[in-house]
Design a protein around this nucleic acid. Structure first.
Lengths: 145, 145
DNA sequence: TATTTAACTTGCAAAATGCAAGTGAAATGT
DNA sequence: ACATTTCACTTGCATTTTGCAAGTTAAATA
């Protein structure tokens, strides 16, 4: 049984595309979850939990559900371990790569931040970096990373 | 008296640049405020208030203050009307244009959204669009738009 | 001088978030 | 086979953030 997106936003504050983005992603955790899937290959609840100490268990569960309901990620049970749910970025989720990239480059340019390696990689050749992400996450392959 | 940015985040959840971005912009209103300054030339509290019914007066005040404290916008009194405060994007704020652009294009590609005119413009030539924003907001000019 | 306007505060209710503890099904260890 | 551990969550409750309505203050306008 694969979890499927059932996206039923009742009313949107405005028709502007940016508003839609903000309503889906404008919170403290969603983009970080997506980043860790995209860049670090996280796939299970536990991986997220162990990683950022800071996110509350109920909030993580809630965010994962919401991302599924928006069609940004999808979850299916691990065939080799019935307890585990494997989350994966959908096409829609992978398409957030340029958004994440610009946010990373902006912060790196204006704030004192770490992970300079990633930043250099992105800055050196944005398109190449994006192509890499898309390749590693191409939907043909069952397991990215 | 020009309000100046005094940016003193006490502790950051992680050094990742994305985390920095999310901490500054990851809420329901900040990016919309920036969009309206960038694209619609909004400059005063009242303009924001009148526009989106939906934002609470105290939240708007709080967000404007925070954006100032992050150095994304700055506010100075209108010389011709002592009641008014004119807010303006800083360089750091203008540099958010690529982030907004990617968020708009992402939502437009995956959601049912309005403002197709803007979307077409952005899609047709992203760099040209960005150049236009930067030009209109170049710091030489006192009043953008 | 009286009223209006702009930009906020303040007080309080409602919603979202965070934290600790608990649950239930599946795997693992003995 | 049975007890323990692991995984992916809930639940309950305190704290924080948001939203709404009603002030407030200084400056402009009638």
């Amino acid at each position: 049984m694969t979890l499927v997106a059932k996206h039923n936003k009742l009313s949107r504050r405005s028709g502007c595309p940016l508003n839609a983005s903000v309503e889906m992603l404008g919170d403290r955790w969603s983009l970080l979850i997506i980043r860790d899937m995209m860049l670090r290959g996280f796939r299970t609840y536990k991986e997220f939990m162990d990683c950022y100490e800071g996110i509350a268990t109920n909030i993580l569960a809630d965010r994962l559900q919401k991302l599924v309901s928006y069609g940004i990620i999808e979850g299916e049970p691990d065939p080799s371990d019935g307890r585990k749910l494997i989350y994966r970025l959908t096409k829609k989720g992978i398409d957030l790569a340029p958004v994440l990239t610009e946010m990373v480059l902006w912060a790196a340019a204006h704030e004192d931040t770490g992970n300079q390696e990633l930043v250099r990689l992105m800055r050196a050749d944005k398109e190449k970096f994006l192509a890499g992400v898309r390749m590693r996450w191409s939907n043909d392959r069952p397991k990215p990373s």
